[in-house]
């Protein structure tokens, strides 16, 4: 077991195998390569993406289906490759992949980035922020979004 300091939950222990590796970081955070996905019972259905190199950096996210149950993932070839999906491998959210939208929490309200969700390959534990090749969703989708699955139905997520 390794330990790290988190932005919201003090010190936490984690298994090496739980680490999510972002080979390209995230846009604006290219140097941040390793994160943990932290789920806390009292914060469900939120999922926290905690940086392992910067304790103050923790993205608050939601599984995309909790926002829009009809969400359709669009991902470029380059991003598929970065996350280690094989050329013909189908990406199935809730099975071989998790898909999280990063939330922006402001006084005026909460928005979710459905344009560029974080896609996690649950087989390789590689992850990428996959900015869609076509603009079908907004990077500032207001929450709550009525099309979301109830929290209890949201796939419980990154393990």
């Amino acid at each position: 077991m390794a330990r790290c300091v988190t932005r919201y939950f003090g010190e936490t222990e984690y298994e090496e195998s739980a680490i999510l590796r972002f080979p390209a970081g995230l846009p604006g955070f290219e140097g941040e390569r390793e994160f943990l996905a932290i789920e806390q019972p009292e914060q469900r259905p939120l999922v926290f993406l905690q940086s392992l190199s910067t304790p103050e950096l923790c993205f608050v996210t939601l599984p995309v289906f909790a926002i829009d149950r009809n969400y359709r993932l669009e991902i470029t070839e380059a991003d598929r490759e970065l996350a280690g999906f094989r050329p013909n491998e189908e990406i199935r959210i809730g099975e071989n992949a998790a898909c999280l939208a990063i939330l922006t929490i402001e006084e005026s309200g909460v928005t979710a980035n459905l344009l560029g969700p974080v896609v996690i390959n649950l087989t390789t534990r590689l992850a990428v922020q996959a900015v869609a090749p076509q603009i079908s969703y907004s990077h500032r989708t207001p929450l709550p979004f009525e099309g979301g699955a109830r929290a209890g139905e949201a796939p419980g997520c990154c393990s």
Partner: peptide, 23 residues
């Protein structure tokens, strides 16, 4: 670029109380 700017905004701190309320 939109996502980069949005990530920077999203990285700002939120209070645990506001998160619990949202959850």
């Amino acid at each position: 670029r939109l996502t980069r700017d949005q990530n920077r905004a999203a990285a700002g701190p939120a209070s645990l109380e506001s998160l619990a309320k949202l959850a």
